[in-house]
Design a protein around this nucleic acid. Sequence first.
RNA 1: CGGGACGUGGCGCAGCUCGGUAGCGCACCUGCUUUGGGAGCAGGGGGUCGAGAGUUCAAAUCUCUCCGUCCCGACCA
Length: 564
Amino acid sequence: MRWTSFFSPTLRDAPADAEAISHQLLVRGGFIRQLHSGHYTLLPLAFRVRKKIIRIVEEEMDAIGGQEVQMPTLQPSSIWKDSGRWESMGEIMFRLEDRHGSQAALGVTAEEIFATVANEISSYKQLPQMWYQIHTKYRDEARPKSGLLRVREFTMKDAYSFDIDEDGLDKAFEKQHQAYVKIFERLDLNVIPVEASSGNMGGSDSIEFMVRAESGEDDVLICGECGYAANIEKAVSQLSEIVDEPGPVVPEKFSTPEIRTIAALAEIGYPSEKQIKTMVYLIDGQVTLVLVRGDHMINEQKLADATQAVNLRQAWKNETIETLGASPGSLGAVKVSDLPILADHALNGRTNMTTGANEDDYHLSGVDIDRDINVSEWLDLREVQAGEACVSCGGSLDLVSTIESGNIFKLGSKYAEVFGAKVLDDNGVSRPLVMGSYGIGIERAMATIVETHHDDKGIMWPISVAPFQVVITVVQVKDEESMQVAESIYENLLNAGIEVLLDDRDARAGVKFADAELIGIPIRVTIGPKGIADGVVELTTRSDGEMDLVKIDDVISTITDFLS
RNA sequence: CGGGACGUGGCGCAGCUCGGUAGCGCACCUGCUUUGGGAGCAGGGGGUCGAGAGUUCAAAUCUCUCCGUCCCGACCA
């Protein structure tokens, strides 16, 4: 490709509203343009990168027996109603009606569709199966952000495995795990597999593949000692034991005017780890009290997972007052008998605690949880904090921000049962298929690579996904000899199957160098009159900026060697 | 959904307080000079000032409503 006919509108300044570095560089480099919030046009450069990522994903999926298919993105409401996700997907799902008034949705994910097709499998002899597609997904995100990192329309590789039993699923899951490791290696993304919540996918085991990045929005806890890693929605830790002083036989009410917070109560002599934090939630319409230790935070995803809630929110202030008769700041669960009370494990067995009295401006001290609070269920609800001890080795946990680049789920038979995807086993017994589902966001991977491969001059693509492997920068386009050498190297590289961009623009050298660096081509061949006089050209690698003088006749072999 | 900011040529911005019909840098076009790290000079093209309504002789500027975009939080397969 010749730059003079190539469409890559580079910009000197990034748009003011681009915050994430990948967003800035992809826009500045002429890879993408925004159409509206969460929807981006992929210009030729980005499209080339996308294709390469897709190719890598396809190769690794095919290598583990994946079969590529393509499902419709416009899907009838009926199958989503059958699985219950027409409801539970909530606002994330784009919905529309056709001219006949039939309701439909744009594909958010495809468990339902794949399970429907899996009806065609009738015997255990046809198993296992692994199907995947690389196709557009639509999600009405509450807040699209950070360029390609969180969008409403994107390409996803979604794979689905079908097995006769859990054992088969375990194998498929492991194969996908291994394939992911290879894919991310080839993309030069340093992924951390972490235990994760499966959200409303309804699965059991779930692993997310996370890449550390400044602009990441998922928090992960990692143990530097033993390698334990988990999403904050799932992470657990060890707490040092607290020995409570013996308390009174009944709780004692005391006046606490002006005291509305855990911190304020701590200041007057009731340490936060000796307090009970009481929060009021509406869990699928049911008012519920949720208790954690005073110095702990509730993680709502844990709460949602533990309760299988579809709709979950904190109660409004007025709802709280109606229910408990007091305002937030004076709430407690002592003597509450008509509401479910969910408590975090860290409160188990504690005595002589302090909590709100359910009467404004009063608290209770000397609360013995077993004796005074009617806990319905003990659950893991609290959010682990940085520095806490690892459950497996006691090491200190680090909190790091990451981008979720892929995930794998064990779905079990939920969808197979709903859609009647059953097969006969070797005893002639009908059994539902056991499914897994496995996703990777393609454009997100592209942006994540930029997040992790850039310097102050621009992008530094790994060779595996670079839009071009080589750029030939002709310093003096009007110098005939330079152009002749450039044309000849260009032709030879093309013949060698290498993707080359020939910068034949009549621009100043500085402009051309800056553009080449901005768009991140791994190898630059610089051709100028000076070198030609000596029979050499320059080879510069983008990743380390190192420059070598190479004889003109050796350029092709040097480059092909370097690339292989 | 809660909080905050912004909307003026392709990009970055000024002008708005105090109303008088739009300007700067980059980019773009033409010519000349220049040519190894974002050139110089000269000339030129391009803007419903987010939209609508209102106030006014007159609105980018004042008022109201709406729309859009970004950031923080909530939420998020």
